Amino acid sequence: MNPVVALTIAGSDSGGGAGIQADLKTFAAHRVFGTSVITALTAQNTVGVKDISTVDPGFVGAQLDAVLADLPVAAVKTGMLATPQTVALVAGYAPRLPGLVVDPVLVASSGDRLFTRDAERAYLDLLFPHAAVVTPNLREASVLLGRDVTDVDDAVKAAEDLAATGPRCVVVKGGHLRGSSDAVDVVWAGGTVELLHAPWIDTANNHGTGCTFAAATAARLALGQPVAEALAGAKAYVHAALTASSDWRLGGGHGPLAWGPFDQLT
Results as ranks from 00 to 15, higher is better:
Val49Asp: 05
Val55Leu: 09
Arg249Gly: 04
Phe27Met: 03
Pro136Trp: 07
Gly252Ile: 07
Gly61Pro: 06
Asp202His: 14
Thr165Val: 12
Ala108Leu: 00
Ala28Cys: 12
Leu223Val: 00
His176Arg: 14
Pro57Phe: 14
Ala163Arg: 05
Trp248Gly: 02
Phe128Tyr: 12
Val184Cys: 11
Thr217Leu: 05
Leu124Ala: 04
Pro199Glu: 08
Asp151Ser: 09
Ala10Pro: 04
Ala43Lys: 02
Gly48Leu: 10
Ala228Ile: 13
Thr54Trp: 08
Asp112Asn: 09
Lys25Thr: 11
Thr192Cys: 01
Ala163Cys: 10
Ala214Gln: 03
Gly16Pro: 04
Pro98Gln: 11
Leu223Asp: 00
Thr209Cys: 06
Thr203Gly: 11
Ala18Pro: 01
Ala88Asn: 13
Thr86Lys: 02
Leu242Tyr: 07
Arg178Ser: 15
Leu68Gln: 14
Gly174Ala: 11
Phe128Cys: 07
Gly233Phe: 13
Leu221Ser: 04
Ala91Arg: 05
Gly191Ile: 11
Thr26Gln: 07
Ala28Ser: 15
Pro3Asn: 09
Val102Leu: 06
Gly11Thr: 14
Ser109Lys: 15
Leu195Lys: 09
Glu194Tyr: 00
Gly92His: 06
Val152Trp: 01
Gln44Met: 11
Tyr123Val: 11
Ala204Gly: 12
Ala10Ile: 06
Ala214Thr: 04
Gly191Trp: 07
Leu196Pro: 00
Arg168Phe: 01
Thr42Gly: 01
Trp248Lys: 02
Ala258Gln: 12
Ala82Pro: 09
Ala22Arg: 03
Asp182Glu: 15
Gln85Gly: 11
Ala236Gly: 14
Pro98Met: 13
Glu140Phe: 13
Arg220Ala: 15
Ala74Pro: 10
Thr35Pro: 06
Val184His: 09
Phe128Glu: 02
His239Leu: 12
Ala62Phe: 00
Ala228Lys: 13
Arg31Thr: 14
Cys211Ala: 10
Ala91Gln: 09
Ala214Phe: 05
Ile20Thr: 07
Ser180Ile: 01
Gly255Gln: 05
Met80Phe: 07
Thr217Met: 08
Ala236Glu: 13
Ala198His: 12
Asp103Met: 06
Ala94Asp: 00
Lys25Asn: 10
Ser110Arg: 10
Leu195Val: 14
Thr83Ala: 12
Leu162Cys: 02
Val149Ala: 05
Leu144Glu: 00
Pro167Cys: 14
Ala244Pro: 11
His30Gly: 04
Thr42Val: 02
Ala6Ile: 11
Leu71Arg: 05
Phe262Tyr: 15
Arg139Trp: 13
Asp148Ile: 06
Gly224Pro: 02
Asp125Pro: 11
Arg139Ala: 15
Ala155Met: 07
Val105Pro: 01
Phe115Trp: 14
Gln44Tyr: 07
Ala258Arg: 10
Val156Cys: 12
Val149Cys: 03
Arg178Gly: 05
Ala40Thr: 13
Ala6Tyr: 08
Val4Glu: 00
Val37Pro: 02
Gln85Ser: 15
Asn45Glu: 06
Phe33Asn: 08
Cys169Met: 04
